[in-house]
């Protein structure tokens, strides 16, 4: 065996394996760095005032109450709009139209919508709702978020229903159940945890979405419960406050960023735990 060739192959392998180690380590390092910075800068600002006071005018202390309220409301609207349509569409693809042309096309289009730039969805809702209604509103923000929930739910519902063994459906049919009972009582029940995972992931996705809210819900410095008017929301407040020159605002931005990240991570970890538990059982 030629020792020179052998050594060179070993050296090349060694270098590349070290690089792979380095790549993985730097990925973890960046995650740790981001979370560490968030905790360091955000934790200092967490106080009761954050949850009990509204966003302050420049140069004074305050909280994020109106922004948190707005974010929760619009997330609720988005989830309430996107989830049922998404589950129905996913049901069609997995139950009625399995493998037919419509399903293939919808799956392809849905996958594109899944990764389409969210700012384009914002432009669409602006043209559809804000222009026709004549003003920015929390409804428009909620609809924009709903359009982002939809593809996530469609995808997971279809995937999870396809995992349900056909023998279960056949058993139910053999007992004389009509199709809709088979779907509602058997397929949905078996795929429930997976479908819930999808909804949680969708909520996690819209929790931090900023771009589609910029010109749909806009922002509001005051507490507003009017869904027909501009409404404050955490992401846009963070955007505005972080880019401002005021130290108080920047501090609140970090606190808001920490809140959003913790929420998103909890949702993600929860969804993950749910899906591993069901895949094991």
């Amino acid at each position: 065996m030629n020792a020179a060739i052998y050594n060179r192959r070993r050296a090349v392998n060694g270098v590349i394996m070290v690089l792979a180690w380095f790549a993985a380590a730097s990925g973890i390092f960046v995650l740790a760095l981001i979370l560490g910075t968030l905790l360091y800068k955000g934790l200092g600002g967490v106080s009761w005032a954050v949850f009990s006071q509204n966003t302050p005018p420049p140069g004074s202390a305050g909280g994020l109450l109106n922004a948190i309220y707005g974010s929760v409301m619009m997330t609720l609207i988005g989830t309430a709009l996107g989830t049922p349509i998404g589950i129905l569409a996913g049901t069609y693809m997995a139950e009625y139209g399995r493998g037919n042309k419509l399903t293939m096309v919808v799956r392809f289009i849905n996958d594109i919508l899944l990764s389409a730039p969210s700012i384009v969805i914002g432009l669409f809702v602006y043209e559809m709702l804000v222009v026709t209604m004549g003003h920015f509103s929390a409804w428009a923000g909620g609809v924009a978020l709903g359009l982002l929930v939809l593809p996530v739910v469609v995808r997971t519902t279809e995937d999870m229903l396809l995992l349900v063994p056909d023998s279960m459906r056949e058993a139910s049919s053999a007992l004389g159940s009509p199709r809709w009972v088979v779907i509602m009582q058997v397929a949905y029940r078996a795929a429930r945890a997976g479908m819930l995972t999808g909804v949680l992931l969708a909520i996690a996705r819209i929790t931090g979405e900023t771009a589609p809210l910029l010109f749909t819900a806009l922002n509001n410095q005051f507490m507003s419960t009017n869904m027909n008017a501009p409404m404050a929301n955490l992401p846009v407040v963070i955007f505005q406050f972080a880019l401002s020159p005021y130290a108080d605002w920047q501090k609140l931005a970090w606190t808001g960023a920490l809140l959003i990240t913790v929420t998103v991570l909890i949702l993600n970890v929860g969804a993950r735990a749910l899906s591993t538990r069901t895949s094991k059982s």
Binding site: M93, V106, F124
Partner: peptide, 25 residues
């Protein structure tokens, strides 16, 4: 019939959504 049509409509909604986005842009 209801469930079949509702699910089908929802699936078509996804297509219309993409069409709507392109058209409005």
């Amino acid at each position: 019939a209801l469930l079949r049509n509702a699910t089908r409509t929802a699936a078509i909604t996804v297509l219309l959504l993409l069409g709507g986005v392109i058209l409005s842009l």
